[in-house]
Design a protein around this nucleic acid. Structure first.
Length: 857
RNA sequence: GCCGGGGUGGUGGAAUGGCAGACACGCCAGACUUAAAAUCUGGUACUAGCAAUAGUGUGAGGGUUCGACUCCCUCUCCCGGCACCA
């Protein structure tokens, strides 16, 4: 019999599929559209790893399924090739990334084809293609016009290894850079800032109706971090100064005994500059404290834990509610970037405030009662009461629940003009410039002489007109326009602004981009006055290209000339129906891409707001030793090696079978061999004389029923991304089919082949063509239908319990599966009789499922 | 500390109120073989028993139910995320 040797047909099929155009079908608008997408990869020099194969196979299965179900499918692939890893790899290899990236892409594509991934390659592009990044730049200019982007000197996170500024989201909790793993510092640099915060509410609202994993939704919510509270203004005794504190708990304000401001607070600056007079000793103390706390690295802050430090300013803030004079302290537990950079201390009801008060001997006043009306004084950290309760010692709030008290005091403070309700967010604006070579050049020009005349794009005729017509979306304010003096958008018709090829492009570390060295490229005439001007030399971050690539797939067509931003095609295909990728992008790519789409929707460029309707996460693939695969551990599995040894189908089936799709798995070569055996056993059955027949009389009816149940289960499991149980069901069917040579009709056998096709595209098409003589690929065949009446079997097995414990079971014709017959039959069983005989009992019968005798006494 | 996910045989896992352990890996025994690999057949939660069978069993304890891996409460451990966010 013909042996199962995948190497003898897999490569040939890749060529046949390509030649027949199996995966580049005619766009058929009569069918319902379906857009399936894996997060596109950064094409590293190392090639695909087995983690990639898991995401891509998972997306491939559902895509192939939907195509067979008759959907008009968009299932593309492309390359996210700008960014630090590509550039760092190129520096190491002493090459230009422009030369290296195409080689890496070639290799990735070759490996993907080897895996039998059914991409429509006519849609392929790389974010580094000038036609593509020209549009990324165009979008940048549109965002600029709206006032969402501006340049400013800003303290930023700075990676000394990568020598570039970074966004908040790129810094890991341990203070290292998300890409390179090295420690981060801070630096003040001129940066392009993307005002994502103006979309905080929009991004939060959009999460509502998304079919995404719970954890990812929660992480985005938390990252946006919306908090509703109130800013309370406290005037400072004997000085012309007001300190504003943000709080979500104004209900406790009768218990406020001190105020703490961040070391960066403007009041501190006024004291240190001598603008506000204090005695020399206090000034020196504050100076010393501020200096040490600003010099602290994040690592030192973390190491210090919760220990409270601080310095007294010598000033007092007046609490209008109580008339109390509250000492104003400086401490670094108050963060300058959150709220107002100042907090009011209520030590009885906030653990941090308590720790601070205890450290410096400040009075503690209880204003909320604890459990059972407890109003005892608070002197230990575990007594600090942050939970709900009833107000005490709080004047007109006494007796109220804290939530009612919060509303009442807010109304009161606003009425008196002592404060106003505000909403605060954790989300920060997005630092959007990188001082690196390998990214999209920012299409802006700076003209010194126009800057002196306070001219900018906003003062041009075009700028004026635009700002007027876009007032409802545009968040441009006067201050921002003044900040942008001298800055002009390059003529959009000249896009793409191509990245110059440079012999030497290493990062400088001075805060200046390597592009500044490309003197010819940098100097341009000013679009406004025509005088000498300079191009912006920073580039966009690696996230830029991935913020809209899923739109580009809708209209990209390699077989045609220069693509245009085709709103009709976008409308037709978007949003993405199924988006598959790792959970590591929870607050990076997935937040940024949503932000761009919200803006584009406001601009009416697109007719939807949320780009990804369904998100499914893939679990990591660990090494056989349960550690992460890594060159240094020497435990890396290369998928191409696996394919040459076992074939792509075995690898695919193995990775889909090992565990639920979203769960982490450890590599297991013996389990992979099990997947290979499964395919091999099927192969033999499809090549055996005795397993199939053309004679209806020889058909095994039970087997046919099992087949139809399996077809149904596999289809259901695929759309629930339960690939492991889909494969288990097919294995179960195989076991039945193998036993004692029961027969299927050839037509039924073909159905079995079809439901396996999304998982094992090579073997199934090989058999489809060579055993069944089909002329067209199995992959463009229609998902099997079946006669439902054939599913029902004639007999049922009904388990019989006594007091909920299973003691026996009865086999009964389905027509007789009513309570009386089942009970009668059960009582004939000797095993049962001994539990039931001579005793009183109730009977619970669940139609066709179970029988339970409830014996009394 | 807070948020999210989880704890089931030797291993990966299945079952989401109705026969716990499907399916697979591993292991044991057998067949084929000079032998090994491959392949095939049978067995494989734990305890007692030659066996039929009985008892126990889904992290721990309690509850709801005729019936709980599944629902509720308390606790515990593991994984992921966030964390001096006022």
């Amino acid at each position: 019999m013909k042996k199962y040797i995948p190497q003898t047909f897999e490569d040939a099929l890749i060529a046949i599929w390509d030649q027949e155009g199996v995966y580049t079908p005619k766009d058929d608008s009569k069918k319902e559209k379906m857009y399936t997408l894996s997060m596109f990869p950064y094409p590293s020099g190392a090639g695909l790893h087995v983690g990639h194969t898991r995401i891509y196979t998972g997306t491939d299965v559902i895509s192939r399924y939907f195509r067979m179900k008759g959907y008009n499918l968009l299932y593309p692939m492309g390359w996210d090739a700008f960014g630090l890893p590509a550039e760092n790899a190129a520096i190491k290899a002493k090459k230009n990334p422009m030369d290296m990236v195409p080689q890496n892409i070639e290799n990735f594509k070759y490996q993907m084809n080897k895996l039998g991934l059914a991409y429509n390659w006519s849609r392929e592009f790389s974010t580094t293609d000038p036609e593509y990044y020209g549009m990324t730049q165009w979008l940048f200019t549109e965002f600029y016009k709206l006032g969402l982007l501006y340049k400013k000197n800003t303290p930023v996170y700075f990676c000394p290894t990568c020598k570039t500024g970074l966004a908040e989201e790129e810094v890991l909790p341990n203070g290292t850079h998300e890409r390179c793993g090295n420690l981060i510092t801070r630096k003040e640099l001129p940066q392009w800032i993307f005002r994502i915060t103006t979309y905080a509410d929009s991004l939060l609202d959009g999460l509502k109706g998304l079919d995404w994993p719970n954890g990812i939704l929660e992480m985005q919510k938390k990252w946006i971090g919306k908090k509703e509270g109130i800013n309370i203004h406290y005037s400072i005794k004997n000085v012309e100064e007001t300190v504003t504190c943000f709080t979500t708990r104004p209900d406790t304000n009768f218990g406020a005994t001190f105020v703490v401001i961040a070391p960066e607070h403007h009041f501190v600056k006024r004291i240190l500059s001598g603008e506000i007079a204090v005695d020399e000793k206090t000034k020196q103390e504050i100076e010393a404290y501020v200096a040490t706390s600003l010099a602290k690295t994040d690592v030192e802050r973390i190491a210090e834990g919760r220990k409270k430090t601080g310095a007294f300013t010598g000033f007092y803030a007046i609490n209008n509610l109580t008339g109390r004079e509250m000492p104003v302290w400086v401490s670094d537990f108050v963060l300058s970037g959150f709220g107002t950079g100042a907090v009011v201390g209520v030590p009885a009801h906030d653990l941090r405030d308590f720790e601070f008060a205890q450290q410096f001997g400040i009075e503690i006043i209880r204003v909320v009662s604890g459990k059972d009306g407890d109003v005892s004084p608070i002197s230990k950290p575990e007594q600090v009461q942050e939970d709900a309760g009833t107000m005490v010692n709080s004047g007109f709030l006494n007796g109220l629940d804290i939530h009612d008290a919060t509303q009442k005091i807010m109304d009161y403070l606003e009425e008196k003009g002592w404060g106003e309700r505000v909403v605060s967010y954790h989300l920060r604006d997005w630092i959007f410039s990188r001082q690196r070579y390998w990214g999209e050049p920012i299409p802006m020009v700076y003209c010194e002489s126009c800057a002196l005349k306070n001219q900018s794009w906003f003062t041009t005729e075009q700028g004026n007109a635009f700002t007027k017509t876009h007032q409802t979306i545009s968040k441009v304010d006067k201050e921002l326009q003044n900040n942008m003096a001298g800055w002009f958008i390059i003529d959009q018709k000249t896009l793409p602004l191509e990245l110059p090829y440079m012999e030497s492009y290493e990062p400088t570390g001075t805060g200046e981009s390597p592009l500044a060295q490309a003197t010819e490229w940098v100097s341009v005439p000013c679009p406004q006055c025509g005088g000498a001007a300079r191009r912006e030399t920073d580039t966009m971050p690696n996230w830029a290209g991935s913020c809209w690539y899923f739109l580009a797939f809708a209209f990209w067509d390699k077989t045609k000339k220069q693509p245009v931003f085709d709103q009709e095609q976008i409308k037709k295909w978007l949003p993405v129906d199924w988006y598959v990728g790792g959970a590591e992008h929870a607050v990076l790519h997935l937040l940024y891409a949503r932000f761009w789409m919200h803006v584009l929707n406001d601009l009416k460029f697109i007719d939807f707001r949320e780009p990804f309707l369904r998100l499914r996460n893939v679990g990591m693939v660990l090494a056989e030793d349960h550690r992460k695969m890594s060159k240094s551990w020497g435990n890396v599995i290369n998928p191409t090696d696996v394919v040459s040894e076992y074939g792509a189908d075995a690898l695919r089936v193995y990775e889909m079978f090992m565990a639920p799709f979203n769960q982490e798995i450890s590599w297991s070569t013996s389990a992979l061999q099990g997947a290979f055996r499964f395919l091999q056993r099927l192969w033999y059955l499809f090549h055996s004389e005795t397993s199939m027949t053309d004679n209806e009389a020889e058909v095994n009816r039970k087997l046919r029923s099992k087949l139809y149940k399996t077809i149904e289960k596999v289809g259901n499991d695929i759309v629930e991304i339960k690939y492991n149980t889909a494969i288990a069901a097919m294995m179960e069917f195989l076991n039945d089919w193998e036993k004692n040579g029961p027969k299927l009709t050839r037509e039924d056998a073909k159905k079995m082949l079809q439901i396996l096709a999304p998982f094992a595209p090579f073997m199934t098409d090989e058999i489809w063509r060579n055993v069944f003589g089909e002329k067209e690929s199995i992959h463009i065949s229609t998902w099997p239908t079946f006669d439902r009446s054939q599913i029902e079997t004639e007999e049922l097995v009904i388990p019989v319990q006594v007091n909920g414990k299973t003691r026996s079971s009865v086999i009964i014709p389905i027509a007789d599966a009513n309570k009386d017959s089942v009970v009668k039959k059960a009582l004939e069983e000797e095993k049962l009789a001994k539990y039931v005989q001579g005793r009183e009992y109730d009977v619970i019968y669940v139609e066709k499922r179970i029988l339970n005798f409830v014996v009394k006494g």
